[in-house]
């Protein structure tokens, strides 16, 4: 392989990209019907006591600029389509963190008429953080696991359903 080969350039660019991504995770938060418990704990991780910004994590308002989608709550019927839409609006590569028991299994709301179930039935999930709600330390641990996976170049989950097909045209 010569210094001019396109593969080498690609490798170098990929390395720089991974380095940059690891140090500046931008997250968008979506509440798909949670009780607020997880949401206030996510906010608490951003504020001075836990301060995830020291890891380069920033909560950002627009899904179009985000790397990570943080989802809390069981997926309600009204929020389902919005969740898919928010996910679709994010640029590749994108990662999903599912926070709290309800988002993992429906939790205490399992069986309610307006609850569709877990987040991973709607969009692919990379990291699960259990707890009702998880402590900020657990949320930070989940983020670190995501970062470690990215560092090791772990491939994304193979099945990436084309969820956009479910959106009404």
């Amino acid at each position: 392989m010569t210094a001019n080969s396109p593969q080498l350039w690609q490798q170098v660019i990929d390395k720089v990209r991974t380095w940059a991504r690891l140090n500046s995770i931008w997250a968008v938060h979506f509440n798909s019907g949670s009780c607020n418990g997880c949401d206030i704990e996510i906010l608490a991780t951003l504020t001075p006591r836990y301060d995830v910004e020291r890891l380069g994590v920033k909560l950002y308002g627009s899904p179009r600029h985000a790397d990570v989608l943080i989802v809390t709550g069981p997926v309600t019927r009204q929020a389902r389509e919005r969740l898919i839409r928010t996910y679709e609006q994010m640029p590749e590569p994108k990662f999903v963190v599912s926070v709290g028991s309800c988002s993992i299994s429906g939790g205490v709301f399992d069986g309610c008429y307006n609850v569709g179930g877990s987040v991973d039935e709607v969009i692919p999930v990379d990291v699960y953080i259990p707890g009702c709600p998880p402590r900020p330390e657990a949320i930070i641990d989940g983020i670190i696991q995501l970062l470690k996976d990215l560092q090791g170049g772990k491939p994304r989950s193979a099945v990436r359903p084309n969820v956009a097909a479910e959106l009404p045209s």
Binding site: S34, G73, V108, V115
Partner: peptide
Amino acid sequence: GYAHRGIEKAAESRSWYQNLYLFERV
């Protein structure tokens, strides 16, 4: 309605004790 889960209906099928944990999560 984005966070409407249907707690009032669910409560009717759970015991008095189980409902305590459900209503805590309103």
